[in-house]
Design a protein around this nucleic acid. Structure first.
Lengths: 350, 350
DNA sequence: CTGAAAGCGCTTACAG
DNA sequence: CTGAAAGCGCTTACAG
């Protein structure tokens, strides 16, 4: 192990196999025909010496790194805490499954606020060509970084709500539509006083979309949108609790709640329990995500399959990376399904 | 934007600034003295043209990639589900904070079982020199991959329990000691029938360590270790519930439980509530991790600061990467603190 | 303080 | 089917 400081290179293989380095390259990459006999000799040596081409050298000439970056334009803490457990790991897993299979490495990066002086990390990664393409998770309105990559036509796919449809590739469920349909579902059950809990700050596009779906469904039903029926929650159960508390202290209390995420719905349930309210009789409840929580607490919820989003996002990026001519942006919509459980079931009292 | 297909290179800067490429390199990297005036001219051009050295070209000669890999020798799903939400994001954040500051990129990889035919991902990354070093999370007994990297003296740090102390760098809390002290705490309160819930399969070294600490504390107190007082749980609350149910159906029921992780303790609490048992009067409870759950449910728990582990792990790896001569392996122990809450407080009934 | 040149380890025309 | 040569974009002795 003393001399293994110096890795084995293509020259070593060539010498040992008695051929030129081009032939080794052709054989290894299958990029030109090589005599069967020669090929066998070469591969024997490759195996014996544990040869693996140096990625920097190869990348220098091919202009590819085989690195894909998963990026989120937020401080890591915000991203992870907003996403919650399963959400993030599901997304990562979907991405990872595809990249593994196609032999890409996964880089992970986020915006380091506080370092605002330096060039943003993602821009640096692009300029120094440290990655071939990027998956953007949880985009927000302020997207100067995305803009910059976009100007340079850097390959990217947004996994999540996309502000600029038809300009940038994206994969997501249709949060607007789910918001719309969840609300519609409550309207269909006879509710007219329907409140909404945002899954997080409206700065996150996904939150805005869900809210707008809610708003438009109300409007279509001729119901006025009221500010006091909207609560901006966060990723904690307690924000659902506080939302419920806020709604139910109004003069005219809502009879139904469209919760922005399952864990908030759990908070609503908790408040209802403590205050002797029956769900769905006193308060009907519907949510987004359909996580394990929804199942555990019997909450009606619309699926948002993050694994699928990750998988399709990675696939799309790979497609972009391997096709010759650029085509117009593609916006993939992952189907969502409403899983009906007891929390929304009954007609309202009034 | 038409001609930006071709990135700007060091040649462009040299030409534009009227100097040689070596001088540009010296100025940019501060690696040799450059006349103030020349320097200014060069940096003006660099700024104007948005120059950033190509990482592959640079890496080819420096033999550094500035990529660090966070690796776990498990399928991603196992890793994430075992770790749970905050655990993983805390670790990642600690690592990220350090890496950000020191200008490393973070690669993330896991073992793709099912692909057992191919060379393991991490070995491939090492051989093709796609990363400078690796942080290993959640190591297990079967560590042929770690062994291989270790033989090649590839820079690595284990963030988590380390099987081969004093051979491989590592950073962790002392899980054995916490297991020992948690158990000791219960003994000190007068308990003698103390059960243990493993946080996961013993295949994970962290689980084994916690269990051994428990076992040794008992032994030291002259109490016999009983198999039926040990339950192998998992990352789900329900495993705590099942553990409690199993313990309390024994002929001789335990009066205290050392829970392997907070969420299991919550499961124990749930079982106790359903069965009219008082905690801590009928069953005293102590746990590991001290997550938000411990606070919410008033569970006595020992801290395991994953953020700190990640941070120190990244720091140690950076140290290994930048020092000239190798020194012997270093094993950093992160301090743990026992946070006493009501779940353990009272003396046992018997 | 500055430049010309070699070389890092590959791939890819080009010629045969 | 195979090899010699150029070149990817840098860094780093070496000379001056």
């Amino acid at each position: 192990m003393k001399k293994s400081d110096r890795s084995v290179t293509i020259k070593d293989i060539a010498r040992e196999a008695g051929v030129s380095i081009s032939t080794v390259s052709f054989a290894f990459n299958g990029t030109a025909p090589v005599a069967q006999e020669t090929k066998e000799r070469i591969f024997e040596v490759i195996k014996r010496l544990n040869y693996q081409p140096n990625s920097a050298a190869r990348g220098l000439v091919t202009r590819k790194t085989n690195n894909i970056c998963l990026f989120t334009p937020h401080p890591a803490s915000d991203f992870f805490s907003f996403s919650g457990n399963s959400v993030f790991s599901d997304l990562l897993q979907g991405i990872g499954d595809v990249l593994d299979q196609r032999d890409y490495n996964l880089l992970i990066a986020w915006d380091n606020l506080g370092h605002k002086a330096k060039t943003p990390k993602l821009v640096k990664l692009m300029r120094e060509r440290a990655m071939d393409g990027v998956l953007i998770a949880l985009p927000s309105h302020d997207s100067s970084v995305i803009e910059e990559l976009s100007e340079h036509q850097f390959p990217m796919v947004i996994v999540g709500t996309n502000d600029r449809k038809n300009q940038i590739n994206s994969v997501d469920v249709d949060n607007y539509d789910i918001g719309y349909r969840n609300t519609k579902h409550m309207l269909g059950l006879g509710h007219s006083r329907i409140a909404f809990i945002s899954p997080g700050p409206l700065e996150f596009l996904v939150c805005e979309d869900r809210l707008e779906g809610y708003r438009d469904a109300l409007q279509e039903a001729g119901i006025k949108y009221r500010e006091d029926y909207v609560f901006i929650g966060d990723e904690k159960e307690h924000s659902g609790y506080r939302a419920a508390s806020s709604f139910l202290s109004l003069k005219e209390t809502p009879t139904a709640v469209v919760s922005g995420r399952d864990i908030q719905a759990v908070g609503v349930l908790e408040y209802a329990r403590e205050n002797g309210l029956s769900v769905p009789n006193d308060l009907a409840l519907i949510s987004f995500e359909n996580t394990e929580l929804a199942q555990k607490y019997n909450i009606t919820s619309s699926t948002t399959d993050l694994y699928e989003i990750g998988k399709e996002g990675a696939k799309l990026l790979h497609k972009v990376l391997t096709r010759k001519k650029d085509r117009s942006a593609q916006n993939v919509v992952i189907a969502s399904e409403l899983i009906i459980r007891s929390s929304c079931g009954a007609k309202p009292k009034s």
